[in-house]
Design a protein around this nucleic acid. Sequence first.
DNA 1: GTAACGGTTCGACGCACATCGAACCGCCCG
DNA 2: CGGGCGGTTCGATGTGCGTCGAACCGTTAC
Lengths: 102, 102
Amino acid sequence: MDIFHPATEDLDLTSVLQALGDPMRLQIVRLLAGEGEQICGAIDLGISKSTRSHHFKALREAGVTFTRVEGTHRHVSLRRDDLDACFPGLLDAVLQTARVPA
Amino acid sequence: MDIFHPATEDLDLTSVLQALGDPMRLQIVRLLAGEGEQICGAIDLGISKSTRSHHFKALREAGVTFTRVEGTHRHVSLRRDDLDACFPGLLDAVLQTARVPA
DNA sequence: GTAACGGTTCGACGCACATCGAACCGCCCG
DNA sequence: CGGGCGGTTCGATGTGCGTCGAACCGTTAC
């Protein structure tokens, strides 16, 4: 079971919104937007490894992130261009407010 | 238990995204954006009354819609201004792509 | 006053999800 | 080659959600 990424034209608004509609994942997306590509393990939010893996899978399968394998590491990045192409303005709107939390 | 609406400053991104992350509710929002204020019963998507009521409640409690009581009817409308104030561009982005579904 | 109608609430049910620990797999480094 | 590390997968568990029918409530109409 290789890492799956949905095609750009297969991105689904509902799925993306659902993926973004979780505090943990929203935080991950915010971090990826700010810091750029990250190694999976570098992102720790006080959750277990399995839960983290679960969220990354959810984001990836919704088409929000792209995962690149390099050795034992997984490099994760935002699919900014694809998201902007399918849902123009959406990511920006989410990030703009996500950047200013409380 | 009167109809509750969250204050504009209490709107939460995660909650809004979660509310929008459902096909039925997304369809309702799209309809409200296109047709303006609607009576609850005028919106039928092949779901039961109770399910419809449930979705309207979810949208309302997330701050996406405003419900106005008039006699036996409930008039529902989008909280466009409030959403734009809290999450500028978000609603537009969602509607723009939601307008072109399949 | 009584019936009909618009909506809500109440279980109930099934499903999906967030979370965890533990087991597992692949790769790298001694 | 063998151990450790980065990540995934596998149950298991609790919880929340979408859906329904049925019962209920307020208002309007007759």
